[in-house]
Design a protein around this nucleic acid. Structure first.
Lengths: 346, 346
DNA sequence: CTGAAAGCGCTTACAG
DNA sequence: CTGAAAGCGCTTACAG
């Protein structure tokens, strides 16, 4: 007849068939414990759901806390996601801890320490936004019962995997390119972000798919990568406009890249959209403020935030997610930077 | 010779001249302790800075945590403030806990409980944004060593007082009105927010001061109040346009109110700014999205957020603030909704 | 109301 | 590596 009351150290010791001091050592990460013993004790700890006195105090008190770690502090994007998270957090009575952590700098040991600290201060889960997340890192959290969801992961999910929320980047890239093709453009360039970034790769392939479905051959000299920033837009646009056959339209994989395109167009006396059509990606407030206003693919950032928090809370409750990766729909927002191709420039 | 090591229960007991159990009772709020004894023990607790084991563990671990409580979840405004706070938080390595608390619903007892819970989870300070904050509430926190700063308090600081950060609402109201006067308008209406809201009152008085300095008499039928929302703008604009002598310009105390003004103008076939000039307040992204774009008084919301966090951290370090209330400068941003008065409508 | 005594949960120092 | 013994910090039950 097992006791229903809160498990204490002795409970675990009995279950694991060791003494209390040994359990204590395992909990505190001492290294003078045999590996086999450690595993047996760990299993017992997990089984009874042991929590230290300070943890017992914390867990029971106040609303659940979920951490938010923002990898790339690029402002508009992450603030929109945060807004979605906060809106939902208020309705489900969850405190959101916006972490000042800069996870990319951390080694594996630090991850363990970080996860441990989060467990000790009673965090329910953690959401990463546009971060490089390793499976080691995810394991450090999930082993301690802290749920993890990644929004728009930069790297493809590792084999171990983690739950993630993203946008339909491929479909968005395809829609952007199809819009340009339907306006009569056949020479369309693609200006991408980091080569390794999943979202950028997906947008590129959407672009390629749209070209292919129209029977237009893709050209390697029309495809660039770099970063999601103005500088990439400037450099790539200069290069592509210097080609013998420059494109009549450009699909930039982010609004910030498109900003660089606009800058070079102005510099060279090209009017947008009359001489050059341009589609961006993200449809952040930026897209409303440029002249001309930017046709751009909108990501449902607030919804992504909400979905991530919902996912974390479900995982924390021990439920299964319907799918490890959720993709929410992007939408092309047509503004003033795209127009029908009139005359073909040589 | 007093020990320098962390004070434990016995330390306090000796200092207060009682036994350990008695100190334990005081800490846990038992009522079987004589009032005089309780006070003596409390004094000893404060003197040595006693913290329970769980508190000792928490305080020493991880970055400082500051809570943010958003009173009015009106989106754009509080998100800008939050952004300023987060920018600064990253540089000083502070975690920001965006609380899902709805403080206005809490009674005094709840305040004590809330503050206690915050202390137990090791919070350094708390920032309230556009909230009704009572001195009881502030006391509950500061008595537990949790620093409090209020951004743009809705009510005037009570006698006890608290540190606060705001914008120069009076100067902003004056600048908005002077802009309209300098364009030749003499019949200028004021559409305010809640009568009791400090910021709205200050804007009204800025408006009155501008009129007065030009020797223009203020008219009671040109002054309205309500809430910071579209509905107030709609109702007040209808009323003021129905006057025998309608105004040629309107100063709305928020962009959301101005939205209502634009709606009624459209409804009545009045062109803005040709037939009616309009100035808003806040200069949120909204002001960029209306047609015409809104001339509006910008509040330095991000700076206010930064200043509040800086203030909390200084208070937490035991430093004095230079001033209990800091006002950061507003700035009139002229866009397309104001124009020179051409013909006087009857 | 107060505190000596017993007890709880955990950790430490050390013998084997 | 392991655990009996001692110890620490706190709380509880109860005698006065």
């Amino acid at each position: 007849m097992t006791s229903r009351s809160t498990p204490v150290l002795a409970t675990v010791a009995e279950l694991a068939g060791v003494s209390a001091p040994t359990v204590s050592k395992v909990i505190n990460g001492r290294d003078d414990v045999a590996e086999a013993t450690r595993m047996r004790v760990q299993a017992a700890l997990d089984q009874v759901g042991y929590r230290s006195p300070s943890q017992r105090r914390i867990r029971s008190t106040g609303p659940a806390m979920v951490d938010l770690v923002i990898g790339v502090h690029d402002g508009a994007y992450s603030m929109e996601v945060l807004r979605g998270i906060l809106d939902y957090a208020v309705t489900v009575d969850v405190d959101v801890v916006v972490s000042s952590h800069t996870p990319n700098k951390l080694s594996r040991v630090d991850h363990e320490e970080w996860a441990q600290r989060m467990k000790e201060s009673g965090r329910t889960g953690i959401i990463f936004v546009t971060s490089q997340v390793s499976s080691d890192q995810v394991r450090a959290f999930s082993q301690r019962g802290i749920a993890v969801v990644v929004i728009d992961p930069l790297n493809p999910p590792p084999p171990g995997g983690y739950a993630s929320v993203g946008a339909t980047n491929w479909a968005g890239g395809k829609a952007a390119t199809e819009h340009l093709l339907s306006l009569g453009h056949e020479r369309v360039a693609f200006l991408g972000g980091p080569v390794a970034a999943e979202c950028s790769i997906a947008r590129l392939h959407g672009y390629l798919a749209a070209l292919m479905s129209r029977g237009i051959a893709s050209r390697a000299d029309y495809v660039f990568d770099g970063g999601f920033n103005r500088e990439t837009g400037v450099a790539a646009t200069r290069a592509v406009l210097d080609l013998a056959e420059p494109p009549t339209a450009i699909f930039a994989a982010s609004d910030t890249i498109a900003l660089g395109v606009l800058e070079v167009a102005r510099e060279r006396g090209l009017r947008v959209p009359d001489d050059l059509s341009l589609v961006g990606f993200d449809s952040t407030p930026l897209a409303e403020q440029t002249l001309p206003r930017l046709t751009s693919v909108a990501q449902p950032l607030q919804e992504m935030g909400r979905a991530a928090l919902r996912g974390v809370l479900r995982l924390a409750r021990g439920e299964q997610l319907d799918s490890a990766h959720t993709e929410l729909a992007t939408e092309l927002v047509v503004r003033d930077s795209t127009a029908r191709l009139i005359s073909t420039r040589s």
